Every structure is written in structure tokens, then in C-alpha cells.
Computed example of a mutant assay.
Amino acid sequence: MARTPEGIIEDHLLKQCKKLKFMCLKFTSPGNTGVPDRVIIGNGQTVFLELKRPGEGPRRLQEEVIAEMISHGAAVRVADTKDLVDELLAEIIAGSVRVPAPKPLRKARLFTPRPPDITGRLRDQLAQSLPTATPAQVDELMTAAGNTGRALTSAGPRPLTTSATP
């Protein structure tokens, strides 16, 4: 069976690591996608390596995971040619692997939590507590409640008043 272009690069990596007596471990992290393919340990250095077919770069998720790993101080590289593998191994031999400065994540991919959707739950509770109300009446109550909430919010906090009852 013919090897994929990425597989050929991986075979080269494994052969070179074996020759140099470096550890080259397949890296998997169950439940976490986008992690690099390999971990190379040699000459007192540890490097995570993502292998790609020639001319191909990491997917967006892989870029994000790599950026996060780098921000935590990990040395991570991407190689899409045998020459890049050889350059990385030369860095490890020289003891000169450095962690690059972290790149900021793309803003469009940052997670922004959405506020909980209470409107649907409120509508359901109104409909259940008023079984004879029509959907139009429930909508009318929802609109009135929304308007009241907005009016109270825009008015700001009101001082507490106490009333004396005889």
C-alpha cells in the first residue's frame, strides 16, 4: 500500500529519530482534537510536532491549539517537508529549540458565552400556568413583561421606602 505524502514525512522523522536515539512518540489526547501528531524528546528538549502534507498548513483548530500550547510554554513546530524535519532535529541536537512568542488567537474564533435564553422558558411557564390563554394572549403578556423589565432597568435603582402602618 502506498504511503500518503504526510506518511512519507512521518517515516523520515521516525527513521531519523531512531538513528539519533531520540524518543518520537505518537501523541494523542482523548477528548481533545487539534493536538500535534508527535512528541520528540532528545538532548534534554521536548518538542511537539504537527506533520502535514507538503504545502499544507494546520487547520484552524490546530492553529488555535498550537497557539494555546505555546502560550503555556510548549515548543511546538509544524513540518510539511523532510527538510523541515531535518532542521528541527538539528535544533534539538544543538540544544537551541526555543518557544516562539505566542500569537494572538483570531477574535472570530474566541468563545463568547451566550446569555441563557429565558424567554422560551418564561413563555412555556406562562402557557402552563394560564391553560385557557391563547398564544396571542401569552405573546401579549410576554411583550408587557419585556417592556416593564426594560423600563425598570432604564430607571435605575430606586431607594427603599418604608411605610408606617398604624
Rank of each mutant, 00 (worst) to 15 (best):
A2G: 02
R123V: 09
L89H: 00
H12P: 00
D37L: 00
K21P: 02
Q16C: 00
F27Y: 10
A108Y: 15
G156I: 08
Q16S: 05
P36Q: 12
C17M: 01
S71L: 11
G57I: 02
L110M: 13
V47K: 05
R114W: 03
I70M: 04
T162Y: 12
L14M: 09
T165R: 08
D124N: 11
V99S: 06
F22M: 08
L152C: 06
V39Q: 02
T143G: 04
R60Y: 02
P5W: 10
L14K: 11
A79C: 07
K21G: 03
R109F: 15
I8P: 07
K18Q: 12
I70E: 09
S96A: 10
A108R: 15
D86M: 09
V65E: 07
K19Y: 04
Q137K: 04
R38L: 15
L20D: 01
G146S: 03
V138Y: 11
G55D: 00
V65W: 01
P100G: 00
E50M: 07
T4A: 10
D139G: 04
I41F: 02
E63Q: 12
L20M: 12
V138S: 09
G149Y: 14
P104V: 01
L152T: 05
R158A: 07
E63H: 13
L141E: 14
A155L: 13
F48H: 11
G55C: 02
F111V: 14
D11A: 14
T162N: 14
L110F: 05
R114P: 07
V39F: 00
T33N: 04
G73I: 08
P54W: 08
S154F: 06
D80V: 02
N32R: 13
I66A: 14
E91G: 07
E87A: 14
L160S: 03
A145N: 03
E87Y: 10
E10R: 06
R109H: 15
P157W: 12
R60L: 05
A145D: 02
R114F: 05
T153V: 12
D124Q: 11
G55E: 03
L122Y: 06
T4H: 13
K21R: 13
P157T: 14
R123F: 06
D37K: 08
A151V: 04
T132M: 08
L25V: 03
A2V: 09
Q62W: 03
R109I: 13
I9M: 08
F111L: 14
V138Q: 12
R150P: 01
D139W: 01
P115E: 14
T81R: 11
K18M: 06
A75H: 04
P5L: 00
